[in-house]
């Protein structure tokens, strides 16, 4: 057992405290840019946490997880366009549709292993991407503007930045708690065992397919809910949300933060998205010192710095940032 007071838990407690107090900072300073950025980060952290359930704990490298962000988002967008604005309808439908699609995709793709699993999940995600492009009534390639956010009566007002942020933050914490319970339950032990040695799991009497399928459905459903949040956040949904590079971003968040670590995906999402915002500014500033005329242009090449950073983490910190913290703590 780890001591309650250590570097890692202090760090995580710090991140959670900052996230919890962010709206207070925004209200005091009147600077709502950070709150908007972090609403996005919190939603994507929820999606990454759901991916971690199958990727980190279950060893199922899904390269199409962003498809559920799109499904959840499109359900909200389509229902809104058709005049159904109640969140009490939109969100349960988003959850149900995501679960059904995850069930179908999982039942087909979990019959494969390794690289084939990666490729088939990628192929299915691209299939939904092109289906969305074909939805002419709902904006096709251009996407669909959502003119009114989901309505929850007097319960919560999603148009209030603070209320919406806290709602997303509560969903993130709920997701992390759920994943924590799941991975330590009997069900979770089967999922972890199957990542560790699937053949042996069969030999000792576990038909692992059905457990992995249920796990896949839970992950897809949670991500679908994150998709409903994301569509409300951006007031817009387009096929781009489901593009395979978005699935790649989710994998990067999980790997960067720490696969199979409870708070890893959150740390990864914060790290990746904050870097995405700050690196261009930093690079422009540095380039400005050397060659002032190239300053703005240099900022566009921020990924040149992000790439090697990511490589370093993969090469030297296999457990991601969370693993690194644990290592530092052990000394």
């Amino acid at each position: 057992m780890t001591a309650p007071l250590n570097l890692r838990s202090i760090f995580i407690a710090g991140v959670l405290t900052v996230l919890a107090l962010l709206p207070v900072y925004a209200a005091l300073t009147g600077n709502y840019f950070l709150l908007t950025l972090f609403t996005r980060i919190v939603i994507l952290a929820m999606a990454a946490t759901s991916l971690n359930l199958i990727l980190g704990y279950g060893g199922m490298v899904s390269f199409g997880h962003a498809v559920y962000l799109g499904i959840g988002g499109y359900v909200v967008g389509i229902l809104a366009k058709e005049g159904i604005l109640s969140g009490f309808v939109q969100w349960p439908v988003a959850v149900a549709v995501s679960a059904l699609i995850a069930l179908g995709l999982g039942a087909l793709s979990l019959r494969t292993r390794g690289v084939y699993f990666i490729m088939i999940t990628l192929a299915f995600a691209q299939m939904f991407y092109y289906i969305a492009i074909g939805l002419d009534r709902y904006g096709g390639d251009d996407g669909l503007t959502i003119y009114k956010r989901s309505q929850f009566g007097d319960l919560v007002n999603l148009s209030s930045k603070t209320q919406f942020y806290y709602l997303c933050f509560a969903f993130l914490l709920g997701t992390i708690y759920l994943v924590w319970r799941l991975v330590n339950s009997r069900f979770g032990m089967v999922i972890r065992g199957s990542r560790s040695n699937d053949r042996r799991m069969h030999a000792i009497g576990f038909p692992t397919f059905r457990y992995k399928l249920i796990c896949f459905v839970i992950a897809g459903t949670l991500c679908g809910l994150a998709g409903a949040l994301l569509a409300n956040h951006t007031d817009f949904i387009s096929p781009a949300v489901m593009h395979w590079t978005r699935s790649g971003d989710l994998i990067v968040m999980v790997v960067l933060g720490g696969m199979g670590s409870l708070f890893g995906p959150l740390i990864g999402a914060v790290a990746l998205l904050v870097l995405e915002e700050t690196l261009p500014v930093l690079i422009s500033a540095v380039a400005g010192l050397i060659l002032p005329s190239a300053a703005t242009q240099a900022g566009e090449y921020w990924q040149i710095v992000l790439g090697p950073l990511f490589l370093l983490v993969v090469l030297f910190a296999r457990g991601g940032i969370d693993g690194l913290l644990a290592k530092v703590q052990r000394g």
Binding site: S185, G188, V190, Y211
Partner: peptide
Amino acid sequence: SFRFWRDAR
């Protein structure tokens, strides 16, 4: 093993 909540350990 469809028991999702109790800590198996």
